[in-house]
């Protein structure tokens, strides 16, 4: 390339610079690592020695010139100050606003329903002792019921709680009846698939006083289902087994996805299990020095993710924890 033409082109580009942003762009295109000069220097490597020397000298001179011009411009812009270049009529950039996570939203709703029925919200530790997580709940060591939940054990007889039920014991230890609490929180189990994550959320419920019966349990939980899923939601109490309640039941609601005709979500049964419940086992009451002859109670534990999945028609629990904005921003 002829030196004059090159100089002309550089002049033209530098003259066209209008602001600091332009300056940086042009500087990059001329002096940058992938800019004009580096490609020219690359090219002259192939020339014979003599010619290379000559061309190189000229190019270097030109480069120094360009650098000087650009530096001068930069100094001028800096002096003038960018403030005067601010266009205050432009609309502002909106910061991305977070939304309530679906689990939080559903949890709030659940707590609101039980609060309105006179239940107090209490919270407890995620790290529990074997005593609170198992023994106090009538699950002795080597009991087959320990299989029902795969536990993360920590050192020193501690573990990550596998359910929120330890809070039943903690609350009853701390106060005399009547008790009417709900306790939300994270729980942990060694399990991961389409409907299980290693960490999920439960809400524990407990009501203990004189004369509490299974009809109270049915009444309270029926109101919960009606408030949560609508008045006409079909529901059933199905006998089950938990070591800390007797009798025990699981509460199923009619599958909202297939309306009871059978689908993948309800495994063709038309029913979806939403929580476990039962009358507090007398041994559990005795463990906290309550007199099972005088007071009785019921307890329940529900999975928040499960409720949210049914509520929003989500078929894979892992969506909640993938942090995908396309998912999260829908709530």
């Amino acid at each position: 390339m002829e030196v004059d033409k090159l100089r002309e082109r550089i002049e033209r580009e530098i003259d066209s610079i209008e602001g600091a942003a332009d300056l940086e762009r042009v500087r990059a295109s001329i002096l940058g690592r992938k800019g004009l000069f580096s490609s020219l220097f690359e090219k002259i490597k192939e020339l014979p020695l003599e010619e290379r020397k000559r061309e190189g000298r000229e190019l270097n001179r030109l480069k120094e010139y360009a650098e000087a011009r650009l530096n001068e411009l930069r100094a001028r812009f800096e002096k003038r100050g960018e403030a005067s270049r601010l266009d205050i009529t432009l609309p502002g950039k909106r910061p991305l606003l977070g939304t309530t996570h679906p689990i939080t939203a559903v949890l709030d709703e659940i707590l609101e329903i039980f609060s309105s029925m006179g239940f107090t919200v209490v919270e407890g530790p995620d790290i529990e002792s074997e005593y609170y997580n198992f023994e106090a709940l009538n699950i002795p060591a080597f009991h087959p019921a320990r299989d029902m939940q795969d536990t993360f054990y920590l050192e020193g007889g501690l573990l990550l709680r596998t359910h929120t039920s330890p809070m039943e014991v903690r609350v009853m230890e701390a106060q005399d009846p009547p008790v009417r609490i709900v306790s939300p929180g994270a729980v942990y189990r060694h399990d991961q698939d389409i409907s299980h994550t290693p960490m999920f959320h439960q809400v524990e419920g407990l009501m203990v006083e004189e004369g509490v019966s299974f009809s109270d349990l049915k009444g309270v939980l029926t109101i919960f289902v009606e408030e949560m899923f609508g008045k006409k939601t079909p529901l059933r109490f199905r006998p089950s087994y938990f070591p800390f309640t007797e009798p025990s039941a699981e509460l199923d609601i009619g599958c909202a996805i297939c309306k009871g005709s059978g689908c993948r979500v309800c495994k063709g049964t038309g029913w979806i299990e939403i929580l476990g419940c039962g009358m507090s086992h007398p041994q559990v009451l005795r463990n906290v020095h309550y007199d099972p002859e005088r007071v009785s109670g019921f307890a329940f534990g529900l999975g928040v993710e499960r409720i949210a999945m049914i509520r929003f028609g989500i078929d894979d629990i892992r969506h909640f924890y993938n942090n995908d904005l396309r998912f999260l921003s829908q709530f």
């Binding site: 059933r236 199905r238 006998p239 089950s240 087994y241 495994k267 063709g268 049964t269």
Partner: peptide, 10 residues
Amino acid sequence: LTMRGLEVES
């Protein structure tokens, strides 16, 4: 059976 406490899952 399911309503007896022996849940027939499928």
